[in-house]
Design a protein around this nucleic acid. Structure first.
Lengths: 106, 106
DNA sequence: ACCCAGTACTATATAATGTATAGTAGCTAA
DNA sequence: TTAGCTACTATACATTATATAGTACTGGGT
């Protein structure tokens, strides 16, 4: 899949998946990859950045399937940022679709 | 507007706008900016790259409103590439919308 | 006891691309 | 003649997805 299209959207995906429950990195990679193929190396930098910016709180929890998991919990600021991103996406994709429709109507 | 969302899409926009008739750079900047705000510095590198890759043929034409204009004409390969990009975009935006719908249904 | 696969995270370097900024140059109108 | 619009070029920069490598824990097969 077109790599450039993903720019900015992975952030949105990560935030959405943490909306209903706390998630850990490895889980996010595989959940998101069901829809949009991504690499492990893409998720962890995003998680660190969003945490640094105050959109996630984190805590460690033991696992019986491997090393401890770092869980990411959406903060209030994170929720607001997510809403903004979704709104931006809706406007953006609408504009792109209009350009395509107007340009391709044969 | 979210800068990252634009990555990869400007290319698609440029190609679409040259589908019905040949265009020059300055014209493209302003046409596309009606829908998605972009800078002059974004368009010209794209035009040079797409030309280098064989998706555009170019020719100069005089203008009575300023310096000569370099027109960009979509090649057959350019048309095929555009079709591919639109197809990629449709799949991508569908996936993103599914993720948003599934994640935000309260 | 040993090795391998799967799980889980971290760190670094790289590639792609939109933007900012600056510069060149032609035309028209006040 | 000067300002403003038109039109293109070039360079440096910021952001972000990826590739790659490494650390480390668990459990199963031999």
């Amino acid at each position: 899949m077109n790599v450039q299209f993903k720019k900015g959207i992975l952030e949105l995906c990560v935030l959405i998946y943490t909306l209903k429950k706390d998630r850990y990195g490895y889980e996010l990679v595989h959940s998101i990859s069901d829809k949009i193929q991504i690499a492990e190396g893409s998720i962890y930098p995003i998680l660190r950045r969003l945490t640094k910016e105050g959109y996630f709180a984190t805590y460690l929890a033991e696992s019986n399937e491997g090393p401890p998991r770092k869980y990411y919990q959406l903060t209030h600021a994170g929720r607001e940022y997510l809403d903004q991103l979704v709104s931006d996406w809706n406007l953006f994709s609408k504009s792109v679709n209009e350009i395509i429709e107007e340009g391709m109507d044969t």
